[in-house]
Nucleic acid binder design. Structure first.
Length: 117
RNA sequence: UGGGUCGGCCGGGCGGCCGCGGCUCCACGUGAGUGGGGUCGAGGAAGGUCCGGGCUCCACAGGGCAGGGUGGUGGCCAACAGCCACCCGGGGCAACCCGCGGGAUCAGUGCCACAGAGAACAGACCGCCAGUCCCUCCGGGGACCGGUAAGGGUGAAACGGUGGUGCAAGAGACCACCAGUACGCCGGGCGACCGGCGUAGCUAGGCAAACCCCACCCGGAGCAAGAUCAGACAGGAUGCGUUCGAGGGCGGCCCGCCCGAGCAUCCGGGUAGAUCGCACCAGGCGGCCGGCAACGGUCGUCGCAGAUGGAUGGUCGCCCCUGCGUCAGCAGGACAGAACCCGGCCUACAGGCCGACCCACUCC
RNA sequence: GCCCCGGUAGCCCAACGGCAGAGGCGAUGCUCUCAAACAGCAUUCAGUGUGAGUUCGAAUCUCACCCGGGGCA
């Protein structure tokens, strides 16, 4: 689980990460990562987008919880970036059927690609 | 033993490690906060949003029309379109189940396609019968004018059913029994209604989930309600109006009441942050009492989510259930996630537990 | 939170409660042509989103559910 400081809470933050960030995708999810080296340093912020296409409310919250838990393990990687990082993880319909470890593998691979210099 | 009916309940359990949200305590710190401990943390449907209420605001919650809802009776409930019991009708051998179950003679209007002679105070197509006339191979046949609803055929439905008397042939025309209607009296029930007796005319189609009529109920909005605090900005043009009243409360209309000096359109500009509401109540559980029951009363006991990008997750072990299986093991375990709160209804749901009752067969 | 529409053939869309369903585009076949397009003729494709009810009879009326779309705050 992520603590409150690491959550992306306003729609402007979502918009910046999705519009101007770097992107990488897999069959289960798409990640958008943005950071500004000139901005003040701070804890990285992470947000999640799970649309109704993924499933009903139960499966959506399950996917969201799994992703939120998995993202914790990559926080040091995000803190190493200059400035303040903003990450948005968008879940695709396939994420409803994916196992926890499959989701983790996809997240790790896409994050690696998007945070490489 | 097999089949069936009804009601109630559960919705995997225990433990380890790493995490999340609320409340609270302790330590450190001027403070923002940091660290640690304790405790609580999704459902029977949290769902659909189909009803009802609380709460808040809208003049004081007022009248009429329109509109909407309900629709056997009695009770329960804060209230309801809910629940319980009963009545009536239908289904089932039965337990039991199903029913938007007021009014169509006694307000009025409308509809009943096709078929059929005729479809609503109906109707002579075939048929049956009398009379007159004509023909005749003397069996009868035809035409005209009448009588007739017993029979045929059509239809979802044809103006009581069966048997007899009667008649030229027939007919509730008359009789017996049966079905049904209305009225009166008696008895039972709080009531819907039920039972009995008598009389009447002998019989009156269906559809109101067609318009409608009757009875009863309903003011409007909704926690983004509403309240407090903080913060930002910039006004201008035109029109109407200031007790001769613009506009608003007010939602479809009218009346009435209240507020009332601004309002409407266009151009331009700004904000959308925090706190409260916000979780202790028609509350859960257990015993006793009243009641057929729904439910009510009383005593004891418990404290039970409160987020705001939105908290319950991840992982491991043992047990339980199901399936596969060369009995080592492998795979799976429903429907579904609170957003102001509560009472119902409806819908989804793997598997399991408990209780009551009915029918059939067998044994004692 | 409150409220409103719609669902009929592969597609677009009609249908006073009455023979169960009109039309267009399409598809298929034939004619025309050397071949095709165009044109003409014919045929095919529904059982009306699902389930129940009212009615003699339902796409139509009523109720519940499913799906899709839209509006207001």
């Amino acid at each position: 689980m992520l603590s409150t400081v690491n959550r992306l809470t306003d729609s402007d933050g979502f918009r910046r990460a999705v519009r101007s960030g770097r992107r990488a995708g897999s069959t289960t999810l798409v990640v958008h990562l943005a950071w500004d080296p000139d901005a003040d340093a701070g804890p990285p912020q992470v947000g999640f987008t799970v649309s109704k296409a993924v499933g009903n409310a139960v499966t959506r919250t399950r996917v969201k919880r799994r992703l939120r838990h998995l993202t914790r393990e990559h926080l040091p990687q995000l803190e190493a970036l200059p400035g303040r990082a903003a990450l948005v993880v968008r879940a695709l319909p396939a994420s409803a059927e994916a196992s926890y470890s499959a989701l983790g593998a996809d997240l790790g691979r896409t994050l690696e690609r998007v945070s490489r210099p």
